[in-house]
Amino acid sequence: MNSDARVRDDVVSSHAVAGAPCWVSLTARDRRTAEDFYRAVLGWDFRTASLMDGFRIAYAHGVPVAGIAAVASTWQMAVAWTPYFAVESADEAVARGQERGGTVAVGPIGFPPGRAALLADRDGAVFGIWEGRLVVGWETWRRAAPAFLRLHTRNAFDAAMFYGGVLEWATARPGCCEVHYDGDEVVLRSEGVVVARIHSGAVEAAPDPTIRPHWQVHFAVADVGACVRAALAHGGTVEDGADATEAVLRDPDGARFTVTSASQP
């Protein structure tokens, strides 16, 4: 194990980083095609996991960074990347979400060594919660996996109030996430590190009806251009506006994600 993989590996429980993103997972129709695509674009390797049939874990340089499950067709789920947030109690987090107008799609259900649930916020953006032991130490995962998450929504302030209540952001509990405003975005920090942003455009701008509220996963990469070329060569698509620092891609199933230059702050 290298030195990076030992950083804060004592933090292996959702209780220790409650409220922070702790995992991302892809629901796919064709797992083998998805694996080939992400192996080419992001350089991942894949191994079988014991959570459930058809579930695989992606590794980046030996560190588990994401899950892929071929359940989109079986469970009638959308093909998409979904972020999971650590919570102390899945039952309590689900109850807080329902109290605030959110809906529950799945769970909480047991996936040893923990429990998970899928929810949607008041505007329909889907996210997950996780209670229990983390797949890998939180700091190790954060360094190896997504650069950050961004919620595209209709009202950033309203969304921050919803998630803050469900995930207990900006509370008095030790180690909770901090919430700040940065221009037109709400910024979430865990131990001083930006882990998520909530964006709804300029305050005076009307909501864009063409954008369905959703969480976007940003993966840090060494070469955005190489990722774009690999995506196109393996059945993916690239949205307009791609440049050397960032590109929005879709995999062959249509799941949307962003690659961001690792050299960017």
Rank of each mutant, 00 (worst) to 15 (best):
A5R: 08
A5T: 14
R6L: 13
D10V: 15
V11C: 04
V12E: 00
H15I: 10
A18L: 02
A18G: 07
G19S: 05
C22V: 14
V24E: 02
R29W: 06
R31A: 00
R31V: 05
T33L: 01
A34S: 09
E35L: 03
E35P: 13
D36F: 11
R39Q: 11
A40R: 13
L42E: 09
L42I: 13
G43E: 07
D45A: 05
F46P: 03
R47W: 00
R47C: 00
S50D: 05
S50C: 00
L51N: 03
M52Y: 14
F55Y: 15
I57R: 11
Y59V: 05
Y59K: 03
A60I: 09
A60M: 08
H61T: 13
V63L: 02
P64R: 07
V65F: 05
V65S: 05
G67S: 11
G67I: 12
I68L: 12
V71I: 15
V71R: 12
A72N: 14
A72F: 11
A78N: 04
A78F: 00
V79T: 15
V79E: 10
V79C: 10
A80D: 11
W81N: 03
A86R: 08
A86C: 08
E88V: 15
E92Q: 13
V94T: 11
G101W: 13
G102Q: 08
G102T: 14
V104K: 09
V104Q: 05
G107R: 13
I109Q: 03
G110W: 02
G110Q: 10
F111Q: 09
L118F: 10
L119A: 01
L119E: 01
R122C: 01
F127Q: 00
F127I: 04
I129T: 13
I129Y: 03
E131V: 11
G132C: 04
G132A: 10
R133C: 00
V136E: 02
V136R: 08
R142F: 06
A145T: 11
A145D: 03
A145V: 08
P146H: 01
A147N: 10
A147G: 06
L149P: 12
H152V: 06
H152T: 07
H152P: 03
T153F: 04
N155I: 10
A156F: 10
F157N: 12
A160F: 09
Y163W: 12
V166P: 01
W169H: 06
T171H: 12
A172G: 14
G175A: 10
H180G: 00
Y181S: 03
D184L: 02
E185A: 09
E185G: 01
L188W: 09
R189C: 06
R189I: 05
S190K: 14
E191D: 15
E191F: 14
E191G: 08
G192Q: 06
V194S: 00
V195Y: 02
V195A: 01
R197H: 06
R197E: 06
A202L: 11
V203T: 14
E204P: 14
R212M: 10
H214R: 11
W215L: 00
H218R: 07
V221N: 04
C227T: 11
L232W: 09
L232G: 08
H234P: 08
G235R: 12
G235P: 14
G236N: 11
T237Y: 07
V238H: 09
E239R: 14
G241E: 07
A244K: 15
E246S: 06
V248G: 05
L249Q: 08
S261C: 04
S263M: 12
